[in-house]
């Protein structure tokens, strides 16, 4: 049994998830059951960071445009750390496609003029 706190809503139910059947107990709504099972099968997270800007602005904020496997977070960070960008960049511009072998792209979250 794996114990989790549900992050679907502010209530924060304490879930117990069976590692083999992915059955969830302790949830008070169906969304908790879905979260609990997914969290054990293949947990995913959006990664946000900043990249170096060549120019007067110092950093440009970025994110992965979809949640990527939790285990790939540091690999994604390494690729983001290597990136250098120059203006102009618009919100949503893809800066690194398929980052670290995931199906997520690193995109800009701010305009850079």
């Amino acid at each position: 049994m794996k114990e989790l706190i549900c992050i679907t809503c502010p209530k924060g139910c304490h879930l117990k998830v069976d590692e083999e059947t992915f059955a969830v107990t302790g949830n008070s709504c169906p969304r908790g059951a879905v979260y609990g099972a997914n969290e054990l099968r293949s947990p995913v997270r959006v990664v946000t960071s900043t990249v170096v800007v060549e120019g007067p602005a110092r950093r440009l904020p970025v994110k992965t445009d979809r949640p990527i496997p939790k285990g790939k977070m540091f690999a994604v960070m390494e690729e983001i750390a290597k990136l250098r960008v120059k203006a102009p960049v618009a919100v949503g511009d893809i800066l690194i496609p398929n980052v670290a072998g995931t199906d997520g792209n690193v995109v800009a979250t701010k305009n850079l003029q």
Binding site: V46, T48, P61, V62, K63, T109, K110
Partner: peptide
């Protein structure tokens, strides 16, 4: 919001998870 580069903003307002700079933008 400019320094809150993490996501999780705007779930009520825009029905999607935005970063701080995106929400301000």
């Amino acid at each position: 919001l400019n320094q809150c580069i993490h996501n999780g903003f705007g779930l009520h307002r825009f029905k999607e998870e935005l970063t701080g700079p995106e929400y301000a933008g």
